[in-house]
Write a protein that binds this DNA or RNA. Sequence first.
DNA 1: TGTTTAGTTCGGTTGTTGCAGAACCAAATA
DNA 2: TATTTGGTTCTGCAACAACCGAACTAAACA
Lengths: 171, 171
Amino acid sequence: MQQEREEMPSSTFLKQKVEEIGVAFDKTGLAPMIGRVLGFLLLADPPYQTFYAIQEFLGASKSSISHALNSLMFKGIVEYITFSGDRKRYFKLNAENWLEQAKCKMTDFSEVDRVLMEALQLRDPNKHKEFHEGLLKIFDFHLFMSQEMPKLFEKWEQKLATQQAGSARDN
Amino acid sequence: MQQEREEMPSSTFLKQKVEEIGVAFDKTGLAPMIGRVLGFLLLADPPYQTFYAIQEFLGASKSSISHALNSLMFKGIVEYITFSGDRKRYFKLNAENWLEQAKCKMTDFSEVDRVLMEALQLRDPNKHKEFHEGLLKIFDFHLFMSQEMPKLFEKWEQKLATQQAGSARDN
DNA sequence: TGTTTAGTTCGGTTGTTGCAGAACCAAATA
DNA sequence: TATTTGGTTCTGCAACAACCGAACTAAACA
């Protein structure tokens, strides 16, 4: 029932996994190819890979890879490193930066909040009170979150620091 | 320089605002028409409006409005109410539900986390330690967040309750 | 100086999405 | 029973996005 390919059978499993990861990132709104590149850079060994290696593995065109890598670098999720005496760039995930981007996304409601605030100002607060208060509640929630989340991030950083101190002591 | 329309000048301002709100929701990934319907329901007085009123205001086709309303109802952001002796449905925002959806989105990293976890299991933890730990850190961050966020929501609910008790006492 | 390498940029093709218009349907009304 | 009302579903089109291939560029090499 299952179809097997003669060529490069060892990487078939990897390719499937990369596709799977790609689909997961598709669902977050990324373009398919961008998701696949992310997937490859998550699984690849070593974690830094050349333009050509990525292109070959994904069987895609140079332009798609170029676009995907530039998008990811623009977002800060991917960076590249170089080695002296080697012209190639080696692309890799920047986990640290990725995390920062994720944090930003989590705290930023600015666009929706701006219009929500405007709507609240245009509405008569006494006219449909329950409705008005429902909107106010959402706004208040966002406000609260954007204040508290940074504290939570801080708390996590501290937890991480004590964890690392602990595991260092154990060695 | 500015172009004025003879007809319905009083609602020109409203229409602009609705468009503005629409754009803000576009940016969150919603389709334009869905954003505009949301915008109208945010500003409309009364906050419950018939299918036809929405269609008229937005100057859109029935099918677009039908699709937009059903999408919004599926998401739980919009609901409808009825009045006895009136066949029409009156559509309105459900702020409570909207907030719940927002909370869910904030705590749910399951898709990305699943593949991240898989990637971690497939990687050799000793081979590119810094990279591996970077990924682990993201995973740990998500885990931490999905544990702590509900507590934060709880904290907000309590703050809200005390606020309301306070304002009730003042009256 | 030509040639290779490592990508980028520019059309063109194909697939997908958003919307309109018209046909449709079910419930209420006449 | 026929008609109106309040939507829904289907079909088709126009705009857009994702991707490819080919032409291009800039740096390194020979």
